[in-house]
């Protein structure tokens, strides 16, 4: 896992083909190896830079911080883990939520940060994503979530688990409002994130060779007492099993998302009013149920 991080040095060895790559070349190629197209991990801010026009966006709910509701302490206090993650990433939790335009289409994007406690989902991740979805419903904007997470955060216990239901509830409202939701699954997407919003996109799009699953490979091996086949739980495997709509190279991702959003009714405008008009069908549909 650590091998796919880009260190501070000038050169990096590709974990896919062992080619030595100049850091700047890697960055201009969106952290995809120019030789073998191995997708190295991307942090949340870089992810947003890749998707939003001009690399700029308006961030929401940046100041949300977990209060350590369980006063959790294992070999290290959870509070210390939070602080270490904040020091390492400059973020207060494992997701950035912002709005900006994708090829001219005003969109809410949530990008998860793996370096923050494995991208795990606790109350702050749950709240920020839910608020993002609710904002999208109010503004009639599409939603894109870039998943990169080990799942629900153990250190917030059942509260973390319930964020799955909370976000899915908000997605139900988004769906009812006939607004687009695209889930982008990157390496890794597992556990409670896969078993909630990651699998609920109008499109589920994965990057190549990403680990995607519910149970972790080691847990499955322990259960069945067998080695897992090569490529099990990778993007291409899920595509073959019918769980994904597309596997797309990161360098094509923005164009594919923009294309899909247009299919789903979004239109390109230069103003913030680039919202999706409620269609006659939606208006005649079942009444909205949110109180």
């Amino acid at each position: 896992m650590k091998a796919s991080r880009v260190p501070e040095g000038l050169w990096i060895k590709c974990p896919g083909c062992s080619q030595i790559i100049y850091n700047k070349d890697l960055a201009t190629n969106l952290n995809v190896c120019p030789k073998c197209a191995h997708h190295l991990r991307v942090n949340a801010a870089d992810r947003l830079r890749m998707l939003f026009d001009g690399g700029s966006w308006t961030e929401y709910d940046k100041g949300l911080v977990s209060m350590d509701p369980l006063a959790f302490n294992d070999t290290k206090p959870y509070k210390a883990r939070l602080k270490a993650s904040t020091d390492a990433t400059g973020l207060k939790d494992a997701v950035i939520v912002g709005s900006g335009s994708i090829d001219g289409i005003q969109t809410i994007v949530a990008a998860m940060e793996y370096e923050f406690i494995g991208g795990s989902m606790g109350v702050v991740v749950g709240e920020k994503i839910t608020r993002g979805i609710e904002r999208a419903i109010d503004e009639r904007w599409p939603v894109v979530i870039v998943c990169c997470s080990g799942g629900a955060r153990m250190m917030e216990g059942a509260l973390s688990l319930m964020q799955m239901a909370k976000i899915c509830g908000a997605l139900a409202q988004l769906d009812r409002a006939r607004l687009p939701y695209i889930s982008v699954l990157t390496d890794p997407t597992t556990g409670g994130v896969t078993a909630s919003f990651a699998m609920l996109g109008d499109l589920n799009i994965a990057e190549p060779k990403a680990l995607i699953g519910f149970a972790g490979p080691r847990v499955i091996e322990q259960t069945i007492r067998q080695k897992l086949p090569e490529g099990f739980q990778r993007s291409e495997f899920l595509l073959q099993k019918g769980m994904l709509d597309l596997v797309i190279d990161r360098r094509e991702m923005k164009a594919v998302i923009a294309n899909a959003l247009r299919f789903m009714g979004a239109s390109q405008t230069d103003t913030a009013a680039a919202a999706i008009a409620p269609t006659a069908v939606a208006a005649a549909g079942r009444p909205a149920r949110q109180a």
């Binding site: 239901a165 139900a172 078993a195 699998m199 609920l200 519910f214 149970a215 499955i220 739980q233 019918g242």
Partner: peptide, 24 residues
């Protein structure tokens, strides 16, 4: 939920996710 090969192949995560959304 059963952590086995066939569970993953047939999309246990998707099945749970759909229930969370639709039961709401």
């Amino acid at each position: 939920a059963y952590p086995g090969i066939e569970s993953e192949e047939r999309g246990v995560a998707e099945a749970i996710a759909v229930n969370l959304r639709d039961m709401m």
